[in-house]
């Protein structure tokens, strides 16, 4: 059996999740030059939001029927937490030294993790996330689980919608203007505070979608899941060129595929046997990041810093 299509499929599924989360890092950074390190937890609470909706539905509801409502629930919780973080944690620190929002973000991450751990029923353990029944599908020589179809459909749709919003709508234009020169955007009559909230909300909504995808793929959600996913997604955002929405998705896909390929093939390289397998995949992800930062510091699709502002 040829393994390559399978590894590519695994990489793209994982990478699409990274990409969806990476949008949140990149949009917020593009507008306020802030790295929202609590974004991984905004993703995590979305998973619990979706699960809660599922548990509230009458038992026996088919997952196909439940999924749209779960998605809305996950998005709603992520957006609520994301917007509240902006309003109450980051906005008061605008203009403060850069370390202040960073420390706040770490504090917020811990608080959100602990809140789920302490207050979500059985939140100390992984909670089972509903799964699609039925056999896996065969797509172009790769076996794809039914639940993974979700992200393969949702990610392109989300990107299309975002691309349309940013380039074709009045608010999207205002968002681009704010990212390029916030003071001058205000001179045009743009309420930049509103644009910042919008950036947080869109990023959080995408994280909510990713959280549902994560639950469907892994079969569980747990309070710690935002840490490594957030770190990978941040890596994806930098890889793609932070501030660039298409870069974020591209970075996610590249990272996902690179991880999958490294996991499968590194052990075949003579002398590298001990670095193969899943245990090393995170290392390869960060090696890729370091290489890109050395060779192309602005990221794959990034603009040089001099082009901003």
């Amino acid at each position: 059996m040829n393994e390559l299509p399978q590894q590519l499929a695994n990489g793209l599924i994982l990478g699409a999740m990274y990409g969806l989360i990476a949008i949140g890092y990149t949009m917020v950074y593009g507008i306020v030059q802030l790295i929202n390190f609590a974004h991984g937890e905004i993703f995590m609470v979305g998973g619990f939001g979706a699960l809660s909706v599922y548990l509230a539905l009458p038992s026996g509801t088919s997952l196909t029927l439940a999924l749209p409502v779960m998605l809305l629930g996950g998005i709603a919780v992520s957006v609520l937490v994301g917007v509240a973080a902006e309003r109450f944690a980051y906005r008061p620190l605008r203009g403060a030294p850069r370390l202040a929002p960073l420390i706040t973000a770490i504090g917020l991450s811990i608080a959100l993790q602990q809140a789920i751990w302490k207050w979500y029923p059985d939140g100390k353990q992984a909670r089972v996330f509903p799964q699609f029944k039925g056999r896996a599908l065969d797509i172009l020589g790769a076996t794809v689980q039914r639940g993974d179809l979700f992200v393969l459909i949702a990610a392109p749709l989300c990107m299309l919608a975002l691309g349309f919003f940013v380039s074709k709508t009045r608010s999207g234009r205002a968002m681009q203007a704010t990212a390029q020169d916030p003071d001058t955007a205000r001179l045009m009559g743009i309420n930049t505070d509103r644009i910042i909230v919008l950036a947080f909300a869109i990023g959080a909504a995408f994280a909510g979608v990713a959280a549902v995808a994560y639950g469907l793929r892994t079969g569980e959600v747990q309070f710690r899941m935002g840490f490594i996913m957030g770190l990978k997604a941040f890596t994806a955002a930098v890889l793609g060129g932070i501030g660039n929405i298409y870069g974020a998705m591209l970075g996610g896909l590249v990272l996902g595929v690179a991880e999958a390929l490294a996991t499968a093939y590194v052990e075949n390289i003579p002398g590298m046997q001990q670095f193969g397998g899943g245990a090393w995949k995170d290392v390869w992800a960060f090696v890729l990041l370091i290489l890109v930062l050395l060779l192309r510091p602005q990221g794959l699709l990034g603009e040089r810093v001099a082009d901003r502002a």
Partner: peptide, 21 residues
């Protein structure tokens, strides 16, 4: 403003549209 401060990655037409935001 001083230094013109255009939105550099937007087109001429888009900059003018923003003036009428």
């Amino acid at each position: 403003p001083e230094g013109r401060r255009l939105f550099p990655r937007l087109t001429i037409a888009e900059n003018l549209q923003l003036g009428a935001f």
